[in-house]
């Protein structure tokens, strides 16, 4: 029982990371019906840039710098990989282009920071806190609340500010928003910026607990996609729940079966959800128009 509670506690922290990356997928999907297949690499870059910056500034001042880096990186991805494909309505085009950018980022990171996993200094004490016999790292608590805060901030921004309303309007109907004078291509660029920013943030949140390195992105990006699908690409609640489901199943599999297999249940879940309820557990199905 003790062990189970412990596993669930760690699973929650991992799950929130998946949730926040998945939230990034939702942002771009809402405005442009496209996704960044290099989302995991955005996270990895954020984390590695953070690692370099942190030695000069300390953890908390590093955060805004990494967030700004994420904004720029997202805009670059959109400009280079997505814009052209949206214009020519080429689906394979943006899929291939964002994958290409992802592998370029990964390869550059390998050449800059090396191929090995690196230790990220933790800003908080690394001695676990104990709640009723369940050990929790202080950083894990920061992950849970940091991830929630980031999602809330973006949501509040979207709902309250006039710029956010432009994002929502574009998400609802791109053509109509364009006719109302909203610069929709700028909004799409902006949504990519926000998306990469949340990923970069997730990167520096998770890095002190796990390790960081050029190879960290791929699996995280894919599992976050699984979360986005399980939760539904349109549901904010969905990514949190989806993240938790995946995070917990994963730590359980890692402990009870083998760490080698810990990525499998999430991916199998992804395949099952797509086979039986592609709009996700929390999403609503769209009606095709003929």
């Amino acid at each position: 029982m003790q062990i189970l509670a412990q596993l669930i506690a760690s699973g929650i922290a991992v799950g929130m990371i998946y949730g926040v990356i998945a939230f990034g997928y939702q942002l771009t999907f809402a405005t442009s019906k496209t996704l960044n297949f290099g989302q995991g690499e955005a996270l990895m870059l954020g984390s590695l840039v953070g690692l370099t910056v942190v030695s000069f500034t300390g953890y908390w001042i590093m955060l805004p710098i990494v967030l700004a880096f994420g904004l720029v990186q997202g805009a670059v991805v959109e400009r280079l990989g997505v814009r052209q494909a949206i214009r020519t309505k080429s689906e394979a085009g943006w899929i291939m282009a964002t994958i290409a950018l992802g592998i370029i980022f990964k390869n550059l990171a390998e050449n800059i920071w090396g191929r090995d996993a690196l230790k990220f200094p933790s800003p908080l004490p690394e001695a676990p806190l104990s709640f009723m016999g369940v050990n929790v790292l202080p950083m894990e608590v920061v992950i849970v609340f940091g991830a929630l805060a980031m999602m809330l901030l973006v949501e509040v921004f979207n709902r309250r500010s006039i710029y956010g309303k432009a994002v929502v309007a574009t998400a609802n109907d791109r053509d109509a928003a364009g006719l109302m004078g909203i610069n929709t291509s700028l909004v799409i660029t902006f949504s990519y910026s926000l998306s990469s920013m949340t990923a970069a943030f997730a990167g520096v949140l998770v890095a002190p607990v796990t390790l960081t390195g050029a190879a960290m992105g791929g699996a995280l990006g894919l599992k976050a996609f699984a979360v986005a699908i399980i939760g539904g690409l349109s549901s904010g609640m969905g990514v949190v729940v989806g993240g938790l489901i995946l995070g917990i199943t994963e730590t359980l599999t890692g402990y009870y079966i083998s760490t080698g297999y810990k990525d499998v249940p999430g991916l199998v879940l992804l395949l099952l959800v797509l086979s039986f309820k592609p709009s996700g557990l929390f999403g609503s199905a769209t009606i095709k128009k003929v």
Binding site: T34, L35, F37, E91, I95, A219, L222, F225, A226, I229, S258, G260, Y261, D263, V264, L267, V268, L270, L271, L274, S275, F276, P278
Partner: peptide, 27 residues
């Protein structure tokens, strides 16, 4: 899964499938 999905979804499905196979071969 192609019964229900196309485009980016299917691309991700194939990616997930590839990853699972790689894990299985390894493990």
């Amino acid at each position: 899964p192609a019964l229900r999905v196309t485009g980016p979804y299917l691309a991700m499905v194939t990616l997930a499938f590839g990853t699972i196979v790689a894990i299985l071969i390894n493990e």
